[in-house]
Design a binder for these strands. Structure first.
Length: 293
DNA sequence: ACCCAGGCGGGCG
DNA sequence: CGCCCGCATGGG
């Protein structure tokens, strides 16, 4: 067991807020911990007050595990600067107060892309179910024997595995009309498209390239940039964020997605992604947003 | 029974 | 460009 002292960090809010980690990881019973597959290792993290405790089974450990945890939960983010930038009004101050410590997580581009292609026109509970069934059906199985404790788990399915799947099979796992997007995207990412290479491009160029792919439009591209590449300026606009912004800043009048992007960039700039995540989660869990978690 | 969900692609004006 | 529609599926 290793640990770090953290501040402005809340693991429960982070793992419950419908980020990729919440889709492929397993939150603990009390919601204050999470278990997730990282390559061929299984990582467990838990928070006790200001202490973030974690351990891993498999090859990863020591300093490399420290770096994985720090990167995954963006422990290096200067949250004082983030809050200073996004607490622009009463609505945002309420959101950051209610969900203080919620971090954007850093996930792999591929797993982020798949999770958010599945997310379209869907709800959080069902997204989680579909992702878990795909992991069970197509994820590589890992069996470990660490100190006499045997455990087995499956890691996130690789693009190659899903490229071989049939659309009918994907639909049988509940993917619905997204099945053909999943297959096409998996074929692209296991073939001509190098998702990792997009990390070197600028925000606009990377977004344009992502939107060339099947099932990826404006919103999903921004999700991949935010949660998969760590572009904190990316501002995904889903139905919740659109409604929240229209009610809060435009007197309830309908606004185009382009207009909302413009507003967000001007108002929150380099930390717009954090503004989005607090707005999304606060509004979705409010009376107005009305939805179970 | 009815409505909606972390939207996208395609067709039309 | 903008607008509108269909889309699979299950939970509230």
């Amino acid at each position: 067991m290793r640990s770090l002292i953290v501040s402005d960090f809340d693991l429960a809010h982070t793992v419950q807020s419908a980020q990729p980690l919440a889709f492929f990881g397993d939150p603990s019973g009390d919601g204050n911990g999470v278990t997730y597959a990282c390559g061929g290792s299984l990582v467990e993290a838990r928070q006790a007050g200001s202490r973030l405790e974690y351990t891993a089974y498999g090859a990863i450990g020591g300093r490399r595990l420290d770096r994985e945890i720090a990167a995954r939960f963006r422990l290096e983010d200067d949250m004082r600067s983030v809050y200073a930038a996004i607490e622009t009004d009463a609505f945002m101050r309420r959101a950051t107060k209610r969900y203080r410590g919620l971090r954007i997580t850093k996930n792999g581009p591929w797993e982020t892309a798949l999770c958010f292609v599945i997310s379209q026109f869907n709800n959080v509970k069902r997204i989680r179910g579909i992702v878990k069934r795909l992991i069970t059906a197509y994820g590589e199985e890992h069996a470990l024997d660490s100190g006499g404790v045997r455990l087995s788990f499956r890691s996130f399915p690789e693009p190659e595995a899903l490229a071989k799947a049939g659309v009918r099979d994907l639909m049988a796992h509940g993917a619905g009309f997204r099945a053909r997007y999943i297959k096409a995207l998996a074929e692209e990412c296991s073939g001509s498209v190098d998702l990792g290479g997009l990390g070197g491009k600028g925000y606009e160029g990377a977004k344009e390239a992502l939107m060339e792919l099947d099932g990826i439009g404006d919103k999903v591209a921004d999700c991949i940039l935010l949660f998969g590449y760590g572009r904190l300026n990316a501002f995904p606009i889903d139905t919740w964020v659109q409604r929240a912004m229209e009610r809060t800043y435009f007197g309830g009048r309908r606004q185009s997605i382009g207009r909302l992007h413009e507003f967000a960039e001007k108002r929150w700039g380099p930390y717009a992604g954090y503004a989005q995540q607090y707005m999304f989660w606060a509004f979705r869990n409010s009376g107005k947003g009305r939805a179970g978690v």
